[in-house]
Amino acid sequence: MGEVIGEFKSVTKRFGSAVALDGLNLKICRGINGLIGPNGAGKTTAIRLSLGLIKPDAGCAELFGLDCWNNSLAIRGRVGVLYEKLAFYDNLSGLEQLRLMAKLKGASDSVVKLRKLLCLVELDESAHGRRVGGYSAGMRQRLGLAQALLGKPELVILDEPTANLDPLNRAKILDLVVFLSREHGISFLISSHILPELEKVCDNFILMNKGKLLRQGVLEQMLDKSSLLSVVKFVVRVQPIEAVAALLGDEGYVEDLLVIDDSLHVTVKDATLFKQRLPLLVGQVGASLDEVRMVRSDLESVFKSAVTEKGA
């Protein structure tokens, strides 16, 4: 993990009887941070809290060493944000909207610079002068992203930044995020449900569920933890395949079993036990074991196993 620029210390937030954040502890690091969790995990509440839009009931949230509620103005000057729910002054044109936001952020409102920024997020030049109310969802998304990048922020928070974009444009936006992070040193906190995309771009991951932190770290750390704690997949090449498959099917630790071509795809709850039992089973039917390979789990499987763990 890189340098810590933000930290939540035992933050609790309730809305009536619903607990949105339950003693949340997390760290936002320099670089690209992926914030993941199922719906209702408290991701958006955490984002709002970090911008001083809501006040924690207990605990402390800090960005750049400043308390998020008491120093929200100073923090908002250093942070750009794109919310999932996009809202603009619909009677203004895209360029006017961006100019207004530039003035509010104390950034340069030079038309040339703003047009460049709109082009950077690939908003057609013909759309710059059109009313935002007439924009498509994708165009609004791009305008929102341009708005978030105004005034060279130190941290950009993106809540579902690729939600309204096609796969091609999603890739472009993520490339832009990587470029801005590597070349301009801008840190990002990206909340998204499209995990394979996050896996490609993020340096650090924060996995939340039910208002709590489940795991945090770089991808390798997340995957290691996953392989120790939960479901693991193996590909086994064995002859004759049917006899071994029948025996494995009766083993209690086997979650799922598929025969694909000449391989067995086995999902197990206990990898150690599987590794001990497999040679015995193969020997029992006089089969020959050609290959056993563990399939590397991905962020999606980490996510699934973590949120379905007991008590998670």
């Binding site: 911008l51 908002r76 000057g77 944000v81 919310y83 996009l86 509010l104 952020k105």
Partner: peptide, 17 residues
């Protein structure tokens, strides 16, 4: 309307007091 549409949230996420 600004609260419901999210515009209040957007504007108050800039350094507007």
């Amino acid at each position: 309307r600004d609260y419901e549409s999210g515009l209040m949230q957007s504007v108050l996420s800039t350094p507007v007091s």
